[in-house]
Nucleic acid binder design. Structure first.
Lengths: 185, 185
DNA sequence: TTCGTCATGTAATGGGTTACATGATTAC
DNA sequence: GTAATCATGTAACCCATTACATGACGAA
């Protein structure tokens, strides 16, 4: 689930798992999941819906039999099919290395309640080691650039390093929370 | 200077301002400037060099008249032309709203020593207000998503918010440093 | 002799956004 | 009446990476 398209697909499925939705509303919720800076465009969303439908993972819900007097514009409401549910559950339960990347990780988090506890742990720890690895790369390039590096750039890089370290600590708190029996995040 | 290509161009010019370099070495230094995760590819670099050359901002340096015995493969060393210098100085001195974005800001920082003090301040303060604005957007979408937001996602968003706040404080330190007469960053 | 790094380049491919087209509804 | 939001879609475009092509040098 590395590419934007796959994260999108996963998130759509996850959101429809809760309740049927139409595209426009879906986009707003997606923005809530991924954050306002990674909001996806309709140019991605609608084709994605089409694709999911073609694969029988979602279907257009039957239109309201009693159309309200105030017939808003025909909204196309989608809902999960059986296969769709299955597929999502499978994706949720089988996080691969790709899931440790920023966006996939955010998407996984968004559906953590419906993620089995052991899988949650795998995801958090996978993410953690991903960050650890990122730190190593950062430190490496830091020392490697070493001499030649301007003082300002150095401060920027150092700040970047600090940020990742903070994220590791943040993750540790989450992991801690998972380990406590009472389980309040 | 928003697009990757423009940041690249600016950075190449900035690096060549110090000393002539060939493509391969340029790429390594570029990676030092932008960080290992935004390293640019040769598929971007070489065409960019070609383009800069076509615009007479850089030229191929005359090959060493006394080829060393160990004639490594012919390396194409580029250096700035007069126009190139001028153009870079002009770019450095006229930071637009685009310069407050992540990558352009990093690029500007990399050449801060050769940036006039008043321009430095404009850049730092522009960046600061850009972050402030980002915070507003984040808080807005935070409260807007409000109710429906899962506890885990909320923690993620909160962490994102904290990170930006930290970056603002980091910037404030830099700004402070600029204001102190002794000026040690 | 083979692997890693040095070194330069191009073409194809992928991926997503922007811009455009269209129109209803609601609030001021 | 007019601006903002709701609502759905498509086509063109941008832009950068990936993959490929080519080859030399140094070390193990």
């Amino acid at each position: 689930m590395r590419s934007r398209a796959e994260v999108l697909e996963f998130s759509i499925l996850g959101l429809l798992h809760d309740s049927p939705l139409h595209g426009y509303e879906l986009r707003k919720r997606l923005t809530g999941v991924l954050g306002p800076f990674r909001a996806i465009s309709y140019g991605s969303l609608y084709p994605a819906l089409k694709d999911l439908q073609a694969r029988d993972l979602i279907i257009q819900a039957a239109p309201d039999p009693q159309p309200v007097l105030t017939t808003k514009r025909a909204r196309i409401v989608y809902e999960l099919t059986g296969e769709g549910k299955e597929y999502f559950d499978q994706l949720v339960a089988a996080p691969g290395p790709d899931s440790w990347e920023d966006e996939p990780f955010a998407a996984h988090l968004a559906f953590f309640q419906r993620t089995p506890a052991d899988v949650r742990m795998r995801i958090l720890e996978g993410r953690r080691s991903r960050l650890e690895q990122r730190l190593a790369t950062l430190r490496d390039s830091f020392t490697r650039a070493g001499e030649r590096m301007d003082a300002y750039t150095e401060r920027l890089q150092q700040h970047g390093l600090d940020s990742v370290e903070r994220e590791v600590r943040w993750l540790d708190e989450l992991i801690d929370g998972e380990n406590r029996p009472d389980n309040r995040p």
